[in-house]
Amino acid sequence: MSTIILVHGSWHGAWCWSDLARRLAEKGHSVLARDLPGHGEDKTALQLLTLEGYVQSVIATIDSVKGPVILLGHSFGGLVISQAAEYRANRIQALVYLSAYLPRNGESASDLTMQDKDSRVPSHLLFADDYSSFHINPETVEKVFYEDCGPENLMLAKSRLQPEAMGPFREKARLTDANFGSIERIYMTTLYDHAISPELQKKMYTLTPCEQVISLRAAHCTFVFDSEELLSRLVQLFPA
């Protein structure tokens, strides 16, 4: 049985997978969700964060288990799992993109964000004085990530979101057909997404075709507090 490795996106940590990871484990799956450097409980300084550092963290997780793995990346995590696939193509059964960046060779998260005319993210960012990091405005984060999560869950999420380093957003993916291109890709598009718009999602999975495209009736971060639809789809795709 493959191990499912869950890779979170910007401003979040492994905590965002708690509901899904628990439910997958109850279904008999082996699941790992760990903080990327500088996120969640990891205290790596913001100025030390790089895309390569994120990728090496995922590679270390892959190397810590035996057998094939499934990488599921959310949002910016899509860029991370894509680059990790370059280094461990022989270990990865599938790459799953959950409302995630799906880059082509030479593209960065910043490049993709600039193509997304319908994203609410740019208008809700707060930047550090030196522009080395940025944060989602806690007063308006609901409009970007958590529109369908309810007030109590929104308060919990706000208390856990952290600043994000700018550097990794500008770093470009270095991908090849021989490695990244050899792995099955599945895209899960979120129909009510205001962070990475459905239009950009469609553009990405059209330019980099996936074996399956699955539509979820969800906002960008619905799964954090209600993973039922996502769970159902994953169990269908990867029976325990």
Rank of each mutant, 00 (worst) to 15 (best):
161 L>E: 02
144 V>D: 03
166 M>K: 06
147 E>Q: 07
155 M>L: 11
145 F>M: 15
151 P>W: 06
147 E>W: 05
163 P>H: 08
139 E>V: 12
156 L>Q: 09
153 N>Q: 13
146 Y>A: 14
133 S>F: 12
186 I>L: 11
134 F>D: 02
172 K>Y: 15
145 F>Q: 08
181 G>P: 02
131 Y>W: 15
137 N>T: 01
138 P>I: 11
188 M>Y: 06
186 I>Q: 02
184 E>G: 01
174 R>P: 04
156 L>K: 08
184 E>F: 02
138 P>T: 07
186 I>P: 00
172 K>P: 06
147 E>C: 01
146 Y>R: 04
184 E>S: 02
160 R>W: 15
165 A>E: 04
136 I>P: 00
162 Q>W: 02
178 A>C: 06
174 R>K: 15
147 E>T: 00
132 S>I: 08
157 A>I: 10
167 G>P: 00
154 L>E: 00
177 D>A: 09
131 Y>H: 10
158 K>P: 01
154 L>T: 01
176 T>S: 11
137 N>C: 05
132 S>Q: 06
155 M>F: 12
183 I>M: 13
159 S>I: 12
138 P>K: 13
131 Y>C: 08
148 D>Q: 15
183 I>L: 10
160 R>H: 09
169 F>G: 09
153 N>V: 09
171 E>P: 04
151 P>D: 05
137 N>W: 09
155 M>G: 04
156 L>Y: 12
161 L>T: 01
154 L>M: 07
145 F>T: 04
177 D>I: 11
186 I>K: 01
175 L>I: 14
135 H>M: 11
169 F>A: 08
165 A>W: 07
179 N>W: 15
164 E>W: 03
134 F>L: 11
178 A>F: 10
160 R>D: 07
187 Y>F: 15
186 I>A: 05
151 P>S: 07
159 S>E: 12
131 Y>I: 10
183 I>E: 01
175 L>K: 08
188 M>I: 14
181 G>L: 15
170 R>A: 12
153 N>Y: 09
144 V>A: 10
167 G>Q: 06
148 D>V: 09
142 E>I: 03
150 G>C: 08
146 Y>I: 06
180 F>M: 12
157 A>N: 02
153 N>H: 12
153 N>W: 11
180 F>A: 05
146 Y>T: 03
140 T>C: 04
185 R>C: 02
176 T>K: 10
135 H>D: 00
188 M>Q: 07
132 S>L: 14
174 R>G: 08
163 P>L: 10
163 P>K: 11
168 P>H: 13
142 E>H: 01
173 A>C: 15
146 Y>D: 01
137 N>D: 13
133 S>W: 13
170 R>E: 14
131 Y>F: 15
